[in-house]
Design a protein around this nucleic acid. Structure first.
Length: 304
DNA sequence: GCGTCCAGGTCTACC
DNA sequence: GGTAGACCTGGACGC
């Protein structure tokens, strides 16, 4: 099947390391995202407000400039291309000003590598709804299980674009599926009613998760709002806040606790309180510094 | 191939 | 407020 193709250029911050951002983010392995190691490109199918679907493949053209290849069935108007551009920028957090983080880390030589390699950014979804659903899918689940659940949500409830490429399901499609279907076909287990209830509340207008993006609430108050969602506990709420660009909390899970113990606790038992105290000096960036610290071995080239 | 065990957060009931 | 047990899936392992 032939597609109409457009190429869109997107400006990126000078310190933006595109491929490190893609490879270092757990979200880029979850559908509808897919990445091509050889071409160093990230793809996903977007659903536009017009209802049209288009696949955007992003790669770095040169430092500070990204190129988006947009494929669509009928060709897109300028407004559609702008929507894709905005969605890609949101997914890559290009608008996030991390200069105060870098200023802060200059006082900590052990974190000099962050600025050196351009680490600090990660991938998120274009909608808060998608990020909340995916976060619920990470709770009490191995990486493989999360990928499986998200992949089945995508292929069984998403809208087909071409071949096995789909959109992420809209709240409407997910709400129409019912918890029974999500449990049986998506194999989300006991998380199924949580996902179904979230979708229904969003569709009914009972819950506006997209408003969390520009909420005027302080992070602790916003966290209390997020915790009202069934299936979202302490870890999940912190993770959602991180995806919203608020790094006031750590999002402690069992892997991170184990990793902290290995790197800073000599492999012994470390309490959550001790971990919080360790990162307290990093203020509003503590959650991001924690993530970076724990991922250092995966982010920094081994030849260093 | 089958059964068992385990890892992974959150919810609910109970104290 | 703190804690125990249930909730599901999939991978590892032993037989």
């Amino acid at each position: 099947m032939g597609f109409t193709e457009h190429s869109v250029l997107l400006e990126a911050p000078e310190d933006f390391n595109f491929w490190l951002t893609i490879r270092g983010s757990g979200w880029s392995v979850l559908k509808p995202f897919s990445f091509n190691e050889e071409r160093q490109a990230l793809s996903r199918v977007h659903r536009l407000s017009s209802g049209e679907t288009a696949r955007a493949t992003v790669k770095e053209k040169r430092k500070g400039e990204l190129e988006i290849l947009v494929e669509s069935h009928e060709g897109l108007e300028k407004s559609g291309l702008e929507e894709i551009e905005q969605a890609v920028a949101a997914c890559l957090r290009l608008d996030e000003d991390q200069s105060s983080l870098l200023d802060l880390l200059r006082g900590y030589p052990e974190f000099g590598w962050v600025e050196e390699i351009g680490a600090g950014r990660s991938v998120r979804s274009p909608t808060v709804f998608e990020d909340v659903v995916k976060t619920i899918c990470t709770t009490n689940a191995s990486c493989g299980l999360t990928k499986g659940i998200v992949s089945r949500l995508y292929s069984k409830l998403g809208e087909v674009f071409a071949g096995d490429a789909y959109t992420f399901p809209t709240p409407e499609r997910m709400a129409s599926a019912k918890a029974e279907f999500i449990k049986k076909e998506i194999k989300a287990g006991y998380r199924s009613p949580y996902i179904a209830e979230l979708a229904r509340k969003v569709v009914d207008g009972e819950l506006d998760v997209e408003a969390w993006n520009n909420s005027s609430l302080v992070s602790s108050s916003l966290k209390r709002e997020i915790l009202k969602v069934k299936g979202v506990g302490e870890y999940a709420a912190d993770n959602i806040l991180k995806l919203l660009g608020r790094y006031d909390f750590l999002a402690l899970d069992s892997w991170m606790r184990r990793r902290f113990s290995e790197t800073h606790g000599g492999g012994g038992e470390v309490s959550d309180e001790e971990i919080r105290e360790f990162y307290a000096p990093f203020g509003r960036w503590k959650g991001l510094v924690f993530s970076l610290d724990m991922a250092k071995d995966y982010l920094v080239p081994r030849s260093r």
